[in-house]
Every structure is written in structure tokens, then in C-alpha cells.
């Protein structure tokens, strides 16, 4: 069975700065994978390589078995790989409706755009009330929901989600993860990059731990929680009793 996304021995970076060293990751159709690790270990770079925003300096990126290394970003999107980038991920100068319209016109075609819009507003009534508001004036949580609305309606084959919980209130994070779960149930594969591991591990099947640009551990999600706890609070790892943090 061909993997939906496969990174083979990928290295990447920015200019002279190297962020990833020979990383290999695979995502099967319908599978949810969490990429975990501390700040600055290359998680975001990995997400960018996986969606074609950044071309790897060496190694191969395969989507559905097709070598896509170095091709334009829009081809990844058309191949069904969606990216929810970290930080602001909506067009701040466009209205809420235009943000959605831009995306649906491309992915659903002209005829289906009104239906897609209606569905988005039905799922996210908060957006319906603000459909003409300029997206840049939404709060961080509202912007994040707008980005989620976009990908949920599009139902990509694979969603690469980068630090979705960053700077959001717990109640919004819960909502974001409810959306992700819905997406997973509808058959999309997920590659979730997170620093906040609790939610991610509850959702994902497998987890991969990155450390300084290389994969340091990978395995089933339920074993990952303990790993992360000792990893992040390594300094305390002598006190086993303290270190054990159970995941739900």
C-alpha cells in the first residue's frame, strides 16, 4: 500500500541554516500522526517540507507515491495536501467570506462554492455572524476557527496542522481539536505538529519525537506521553514518581 505522504531521508533549512537532518516520515491514508518536540527542533520546517512550502535540500518527498520534491507549492495543494500553518493563517486583508471563497473557488469549483460557503457557516455560526468582517480584525481564536472551517469543508486527503493550539485559550483549543477529530472521522489523514502534547496524543495513532532536526523516537501514541514528559523535563528525570504524567 502506497503511503499518502512519505518523506525519505529529508534534509532542509533556510539559507545557510540547517533545520532538518535526514528525517524520514510516513503517513498512511486516514492515519493521524503527531510530530512532537521542544521549540526549535525543526517541527515547523518538517511541516513546510511536507506541503511543498520549502523544498528539501536533499531527500525525497512523495505524495501518493509520486515524487514531488522541489515542485511548486500549489501542486501539493491540488494533490490534496492541505496546510494549516502556524501563527496567522488567514488573509488579514480579506473578509471572512472572501477567505473562504478564495479557497472554495479553487478546490470546489465555481458551481459548488455557494453550497460550500453555506455549509461552512452552518458548521461555524460564529463565522456566519462575521462573514463581512475583515479577517485581520478577528481574534486569534476566531482566525484559527476560520482556518479550520476552510480545511474541514475541503476535506483534503491530508492535513498538515502546524502548532494549532499556539496562544489559544483552552476552550478554543478544545474546539480546534473537535474539528480535527471530525476531519479524521471523515477519512482525512492528519500530520499534527504540536508542542502541547495532550490533545495531539489523544487524537493521533502514532507519534514521532524530533530532537535537534532528527527523529529521536517514534511509536504508538499511547507510549509517547511518558516519553515526552521525561524528554521535556529531562532535568528532573531522576525523580521517576514526579515524571510520570499520564495521558488520557
Amino acid at each position: 500500500m502506497t503511503a499518502l505522504l512519505e518523506l525519505r531521508n529529508v534534509s532542509a533549512g533556510y539559507g545557510a541554516f540547517r533545520a532538518l537532518f535526514g528525517v524520514s516520515v510516513e503517513v498512511q491514508p486516514g492515519e493521524a500522526v503527531a510530530i512532537l518536540g521542544a521549540n526549535g527542533v525543526g517541527k515547523t520546517t518538517l511541516a513546510r517540507v511536507a506541503t511543498g512550502l520549502l523544498a528539501p535540500t536533499s531527500g525525497t518527498v512523495l505524495v501518493d507515491g509520486v515524487d514531488m520534491s522541489g515542485t511548486a507549492t500549489y501542486r501539493f495543494a491540488r494533490a490534496g495536501v492541505a496546510h494549516a500553518p502556524e501563527g496567522r493563517s488567514v488573509f488579514a486583508t480579506l473578509s471572512v467570506e472572501d477567505n473562504l471563497r478564495l479557497s472554495f473557488r479553487q478546490s470546489k469549483g465555481r458551481a459548488n462554492t455557494p453550497a460550500a460557503l453555506a455549509k461552512a457557516f452552518e458548521l461555524f455560526p460564529m463565522l456566519a455572524a462575521r462573514r463581512h468582517q475583515i479577517a485581520g480584525t478577528l481574534s486569534g481564536g476566531q482566525q484559527r476557527m476560520l482556518a479550520m472551517a476552510r480545511v474541514i469543508i475541503e476535506e483534503p486527503k491530508l492535513l498538515v496542522a502546524d502548532e494549532l493550539s499556539l496562544g489559544l485559550a483552552p476552550i478554543v483549543v478544545d474546539e480546534v481539536y473537535r474539528s480535527l477529530r471530525r476531519l479524521k472521522e471523515s477519512g482525512s489523514a492528519l500530520l499534527i505538529v504540536e508542542q502541547h502534547v495532550g490533545h495531539a496524543l489523544a487524537l493521533c495513532d502514532r507519534a514521532i519525537l524530533l530532537d535537534r532536526g532528527t527523529v529521536s523516537w517514534s511509536g504508538p501514541a499511547r507510549e509517547a506521553a511518558e516519553r515526552v514528559a521525561t524528554h521535556v523535563f529531562e532535568n528532573d528525570s531522576g525523580n521517576d514518581g514526579d515524571a510520570a504524567a499520564a495521558a488520557g
Partner: peptide, 8 residues
Amino acid sequence: YLGVPATE
């Protein structure tokens, strides 16, 4: 930090 409730 971890987003999970610590048990102890």
C-alpha cells in the same frame, strides 16, 4: 506545558 493533567 504538556497540556495534560498530571496525576501526581
